[in-house]
Simulated scan of single mutants.
Amino acid sequence: MTDAVELEALDLAALLCSRVCHDIISPVGAINNGLEVLDEENNEEMKAFAFDLIRKSARQASAKLQFARLAFGAAGSAGAEIDLGDAEKVARGWMDGEKAEFSWTAPRALMAKNRVKLLLNLVLLATSAVPRGGSIRVSVEGDPSAPDFTLHCSGPSARIPGAFEKLVPGHLVDVHVDAHAVQPYYAGLLARSCGMDVAAVLDGTDVIITAKSAKAA
């Protein structure tokens, strides 16, 4: 088996920053477009359209930044815990701008920061598993200190995210890692940091992504 090769810290930071910028550039650009319409148009219908665009895009940008803060950011000191209710809130905010319907079943409990970050990053991988929309069902089971995550992804052309099998274990040989491909790689880093095993399988036409605590694996 090919040995895992880790990205340099600076490269990983740059790729994660690129990922965040990629996610928010669209709603921020839409806000700018709306402001330009307000500057140039006197038509009341066009102004109303511009205000709606600005409001919707501002909400979307805010939701994506709040999600990124928990999924990629420090979110407290080392060893901190995060309320799963807060994770659900930012996940639902993120999914409001996605094609797939979303459901979340989890206890209201505190969980170690990196486990929550892993769960949120798996939500991002789940959205790429159903590129044409469908549904994503998230469930969290077990004790918060040794949880199991399951993300059931259903939709037209559902597929295991690209390079998942190589990048989650950290095998970078012959794999180009860009702002999109860094997602499964980072999820793998998080999983290993908290002793969880991540896998994705096809179940008929659906994709099932799981993360199991090592004790239960």
Rank of each mutant, 00 (worst) to 15 (best):
9 A>C: 01
188 G>W: 09
178 D>R: 09
89 K>G: 09
184 P>G: 03
179 A>Y: 13
68 A>E: 00
36 E>P: 00
43 N>H: 08
86 D>F: 14
130 V>T: 10
118 L>V: 05
50 A>W: 00
206 D>R: 11
4 A>S: 00
104 W>R: 07
127 T>F: 04
179 A>I: 13
126 A>C: 07
155 G>Y: 15
169 P>Y: 03
178 D>H: 11
134 G>M: 15
170 G>P: 02
8 E>F: 02
179 A>K: 14
131 P>I: 02
114 N>P: 06
68 A>I: 06
130 V>F: 09
175 V>D: 14
34 G>W: 12
86 D>A: 14
193 S>L: 04
138 V>N: 10
143 D>S: 12
94 W>S: 00
35 L>T: 11
83 D>L: 02
31 I>H: 07
75 A>W: 05
189 L>D: 01
211 A>W: 09
180 H>M: 15
104 W>G: 11
182 V>Y: 06
133 G>W: 12
122 L>E: 04
177 V>H: 10
191 A>Y: 03
164 F>T: 06
147 P>E: 05
12 L>A: 11
174 D>L: 10
69 R>F: 02
6 E>V: 00
50 A>Y: 00
205 T>G: 03
60 Q>E: 15
23 D>P: 01
75 A>D: 09
45 E>L: 06
136 I>L: 08
34 G>C: 12
162 G>H: 08
210 T>Q: 07
6 E>P: 03
98 E>I: 06
66 Q>K: 02
67 F>E: 02
7 L>G: 05
176 H>D: 09
155 G>K: 12
64 K>I: 11
90 V>Y: 10
104 W>E: 11
66 Q>S: 04
74 A>D: 06
184 P>K: 05
75 A>C: 04
176 H>I: 07
155 G>S: 11
128 S>I: 08
159 R>Y: 01
208 I>E: 07
89 K>L: 12
176 H>E: 10
3 D>G: 03
207 V>E: 08
143 D>P: 02
184 P>T: 04
95 M>V: 05
35 L>V: 14
207 V>C: 10
2 T>E: 13
118 L>F: 06
127 T>I: 10
97 G>N: 10
136 I>P: 05
61 A>L: 13
160 I>M: 04
111 M>V: 12
80 A>G: 10
143 D>W: 02
134 G>W: 13
38 L>K: 04
58 A>E: 05
160 I>V: 10
93 G>T: 09
37 V>H: 07
111 M>A: 15
26 S>T: 05
